[in-house]
Design a protein around this nucleic acid. Structure first.
Lengths: 400, 400
DNA sequence: CAGGGTTTCTTTACTGTTCGAACTTATTGC
DNA sequence: GCAATAAGTTCGAACAGTAAAGAAACCCTG
């Protein structure tokens, strides 16, 4: 099974409906989003939910105007013709802001992942405060560009290069933006009457790839961004974004690859990032990128041997170039530890510079139409049928 | 919440009870195992299930003889005194075989994790077939030593150093045992009328640590074994063992740490394992282990920066030595990338050479009392209230 | 071309499970 | 004896699963 991302708007019919139904509804919506148009019976097969459950959920969705029905009369060997379902893409929108160092991308993405009125403008790095102001400004502008017809905005999603605590919406540290402990989600929510999420750029891009790109049917993969900022990895494990215990996972750039190397500013020795930075600079000056290809391949092989992902998606300014990918691929295939019959698949990002935006949209729809931390609960493998909502506080006293 | 491992025997009362109840029963049993003695109310708080659900499940468990009740009358500031629950440890047993290169450990472990009649004997490496025969032999002996009183054996669990496909119970490749594509679970099941699981040693040890050791309340950590076999990592992510897409995850030994290093037999360059093997050999000959400490620290920092585990548990012949741990810790603390306030905790294994055995026991109880692949379904965070069982085949036709 | 048989999609009736709220039970403290 | 507190149980509502019925198309035969 591989219906996992979970986009979906309001549906407040049963105000206190159990989380169970919400999760299953997420499953169904995600399935329709991925494979539309399809019949209720198809949804039941894909989600592994029972036909009756699907029927009940779909009728709610149709009633809420989130799903369109359309008669489709194929059937090769007889049988009743299915009623084909597809999402009403304009039932809801996400406002997304992708902050990257040369530019900030802002715009609107609908339920089906269609972008609208995307604007790219240079990022104001004159001071950290100015950068924050710019983010708030482009958010306001994007909100003003919301389509008149269709549903309302589901929320705001912001992608940031740096260490981000998604639970609090705080940017713990972004070297490139010179931000430290910035509670961006709080700032946004103070300004705009919408839920806001803040996510690390590579994790959002990985999630975008999972929702709309190469990762759609892959539950274990790595998104590796190679660009001016060095190396950043977004991990998807068991179908969910993996952040680590302290939101820190994916720092491939600061792993030692040269045991005799020099001390890096991070405290470690012989970091991949330190080695790569010189070749990235020379690349910008028009130099060759052979060294960078090798460094990328090494980082990638280390990832593959340690985590055994099904695929690796290369993204970023440099990473997604097809020739770059194929040269990295050639080296990595030689070096990676593979069991017989196993192949290593390294692919360029399918989403280009919209990857972060699409991932953010997915997170926004997940998070805010269910008021639930989606990545944690995202029902991988469609096995979860019912989910209890967390109640009360932790145990105060255990035992006697 | 941190009730995740899920041990529990028969309870066949409601033959076709939904998987929902099974999962919640697993949760409850696991909670009792970890925190016994505790009251129903404590279980409800810890599992985040409702009091009524816990009540219903516990009454089934008591009826089946798996849980013992005992009056406990503390209560500081008034209130009815709780009925304390604890597992009936001898309600079921797991037969476990831990194959390591100098020795094979076999024995029996009860529901509460108490080992019984553990036997260690030298491993017969005279030929791959002889090793297999020995495994079957010690299994038979362990079965013969089952306690006369109490429940029956739940299943057989075998831990193997090498690449293991847990789904099929096949040892894909073990260099040290010279096994290739050996369907060990099938062999065992042919010989003994019991379900059998085969798992990689480090993953089992990580799971043991999660169930009975340092990982009990930690959902993201790494178990790193350092021994004659080099480096092997068992990853626990989101509270579950992580195996990667092809059961391959955790090969820390074959990650590049010396970009200018020599070619390793694995195809990669400058592998950690290649560097470490000489110092391990010199260590056996009585030499110093400074180099090995540094190599371990490097591997460990790479792991920490990439995966951001909450703790790291060091195991294995060499890895678990307290002085070794403290010296690795000193280097790693300097080099690891930590956000302010974050600390790196590196701990020696709490379970010694019983780690693999205890992890196997947990897996056996999980797997075979529910006929369900426990790691995949293990209800992390206790959020899952109901789970649908996979039904039917995949969709044959999607869309029109 | 009518009508039965087949296939597939969809809905309905019924059962089991969980949750929330109210209720009962048991103990402390005044 | 009575209020306060906490543990445990019971009852009704909501929801998912199974099974069977209903619906809508196709195929074939006469």
């Amino acid at each position: 099974m591989d219906c996992e991302v979970l986009h979906m708007p309001s549906l407040k019919r049963t105000a206190d409906s159990s989380l169970a139904k919400k999760v299953n509804t997420m499953l169904v919506v995600d399935c329709i989003r991925k494979y539309a148009p399809l019949s209720r019976a198809d949804v039941a097969r894909l989600t592994m939910l029972s036909a009756s459950t699907v029927s009940s959920i779909v009728s709610d969705l149709v009633g809420a105007g989130l799903v369109h029905e359309r008669k489709g009369c194929p059937a090769n060997g007889g049988g009743r013709c299915p009623i084909l379902l597809s999402l009403n893409a304009s039932a809801s929108f996400a406002v997304i802001i992708d902050v990257q160092v040369p530019r900030v991308l802002s715009g609107i993405i609908d339920l089906a992942g269609n972008p609208a009125s995307i604007v790219r403008e240079p990022l104001d790095l004159s001071s950290p405060t100015n950068t924050v102001d710019q983010v708030l400004r482009v958010t306001a502008k994007a909100l003003a560009r919301l389509p008149r017809t269709g549903g309302a905005a589901a929320g705001i999603g912001v992608g940031i290069p740096g260490i981000v605590d998604v639970r609090t919406g705080t940017v713990a540290k972004s070297t490139r933006l010179r931000w430290n402990n910035l509670p961006l989600a709080t700032l946004l929510q103070r300004e705009f009457p919408l839920p806001a999420i803040v996510e690390r750029d590579v994790r959002a891009a990985a999630w975008g790839e999972r929702s709309y790109g190469h990762g759609r049917n892959v539950s274990d993969f790595v998104y590796l961004a190679v660009g001016e900022g060095g190396f950043g990895a977004g991990l998807v494990m068991n179908g969910k974004p993996y952040m680590g215990a302290r939101m820190h996972a994916g720092e491939l750039g600061h792993t030692t690859v040269d045991i005799h190397g020099e001390q890096c500013s991070c405290g470690n020795v012989g970091c991949l990032a330190a080695l790569a930075s010189t070749s990235i600079n020379s690349l910008k000056a028009g130099g060759a990128d052979d060294a960078l290809v090798e460094y990328t391949a090494i980082g990638l092989v280390n990832l593959v041997n340690l985590l055994d992902p099904e695929i690796i998606v290369l993204g970023g300014d440099i990473g997604a170039r097809p020739d770059f990918v194929s040269r990295v691929d050639a080296i990595a295939k030689q070096r990676a530890l593979l069991t017989p019959g196993q192949t290593l698949r390294i692919l360029p990002s399918q989403l280009g510079d919209m990857g972060v935006a699409l991932g953010l949209a997915g997170l926004v729809f997940d998070k805010f139409y269910w008021n639930q931390a989606s990545p944690e609960i995202s029902p991988e493998g469609a096995n979860y049928q019912t989910v209890s909502k967390p109640r009360r506080e932790q145990a105060r006293r255990v035992g006697e």
